[in-house]
Simulated scan of single mutants.
Amino acid sequence: MECVLGVVGRDFAVVAADTSAVQSILVHKTDEDKVMVLDSHKLMGASGEPGDRVQFTEFIQKNLHLYQFRNTMPLSTAAAANFTRGELATALRKNPYMVNIILGGYDKDVGASLYYIDYIATLHKIDKGAFGYGSYFCLSLMDKLYHPDMSLEEAIDLVDKCIKEIRLRLVVAPQNFVIKVVDKDGAREYARRELVGDNAAPAEAAAPTTIPA
C-alpha cells in the first residue's frame, strides 16, 4: 500500500512518501524514509520492492556524487533524471529493478522541476504525480486543486489533503508520511505526518474484571 507523490510550485518541488516497511500482511517498521536526498538540490522518492528500492536509490545517489567529484560540478535535475532512466532501461534487459520514482530538483537557470520514472524506464517531466495505491485518490485531488503558481503553503496543504484521503479511503492505509522540499535553499525535510510510531507509548492495561462467585 505504498504511496509516493510530488508537486512543483512557483520555485520549489515537494516530494512526499509513506514511511511503512511492509511485507505481505506484516508491518516491520513505520519510520522508513523513502525520500532520498541525492545531493544538495535533488530529492528522489521511490516505491517498489524494498531491496530494489534501497539498492537502486543508493546506486543513483553515489553515482551522482561520483560525477560531481570527477567534474567539479553536479548534474542538472534533467540530466539526473535521464541518467536514472538509462540505468533502469539497461537493467530492464538483464535483471529489472521493481522501482517507481518521483525525482524533484532545483537548478539556478531552470528553477524547480519534477520527473516521473517508472520501473519500465518511462520518463516524463510533470507538474504533479503519484505512484502506488494512493495515486487513485491523489491524482484526482491534484487535478482539481493544483495550479502552477502554488505557494509552498498551498502545496503542503494539497499534500496534506492527499494524505488525509489515503488514510480515509484505503482499506490498509499507511499512517505515517514524510514530506521533503527542494528549492533555491537546498533539499531538506519539511515535516512528518504521523498517527502512530514505533516509539508510541503503550496503552494502559485494563483493570482485571472481577467475576462474582
Rank of each mutant, 00 (worst) to 15 (best):
residue 158 L to K: 04
residue 88 L to I: 11
residue 9 G to Q: 06
residue 58 E to Q: 07
residue 145 L to M: 10
residue 73 M to K: 14
residue 202 P to F: 12
residue 61 Q to P: 00
residue 164 K to M: 09
residue 192 R to Y: 04
residue 101 I to E: 02
residue 145 L to I: 01
residue 194 E to I: 14
residue 36 M to D: 00
residue 20 S to L: 13
residue 111 G to C: 05
residue 111 G to N: 07
residue 104 G to W: 02
residue 73 M to Q: 13
residue 124 H to G: 05
residue 167 R to K: 11
residue 159 V to T: 12
residue 166 I to P: 01
residue 51 G to V: 10
residue 62 K to G: 03
residue 165 E to A: 14
residue 37 V to H: 08
residue 4 V to I: 13
residue 202 P to S: 10
residue 170 L to T: 02
residue 167 R to C: 10
residue 9 G to E: 07
residue 205 A to H: 03
residue 65 H to F: 12
residue 162 C to I: 03
residue 4 V to A: 14
residue 176 N to P: 07
residue 46 A to S: 13
residue 57 T to I: 00
residue 110 V to A: 13
residue 55 Q to H: 14
residue 202 P to H: 12
residue 64 L to M: 11
residue 46 A to Q: 01
residue 187 A to R: 02
residue 193 R to D: 07
residue 6 G to C: 11
residue 132 G to N: 05
residue 18 D to Q: 05
residue 107 D to K: 04
residue 57 T to V: 01
residue 174 P to K: 06
residue 40 S to F: 10
residue 71 N to T: 12
residue 21 A to C: 11
residue 204 E to R: 07
residue 66 L to S: 12
residue 98 M to Q: 08
residue 68 Q to N: 14
residue 145 L to A: 08
residue 141 L to G: 06
residue 139 L to N: 15
residue 140 S to K: 13
residue 163 I to E: 08
residue 33 D to M: 10
residue 129 G to L: 08
residue 135 S to R: 01
residue 166 I to F: 01
residue 101 I to Q: 03
residue 45 G to C: 06
residue 164 K to Y: 06
residue 56 F to C: 03
residue 38 L to V: 14
residue 174 P to M: 09
residue 122 T to P: 04
residue 127 D to T: 06
residue 53 R to K: 15
residue 133 Y to W: 11
residue 108 K to C: 00
residue 91 A to F: 09
residue 212 P to N: 07
residue 153 E to L: 10
residue 66 L to A: 13
residue 117 I to C: 09
residue 209 T to C: 13
residue 143 D to W: 04
residue 209 T to Y: 15
residue 21 A to G: 10
residue 149 D to A: 09
residue 191 A to Y: 01
residue 98 M to T: 02
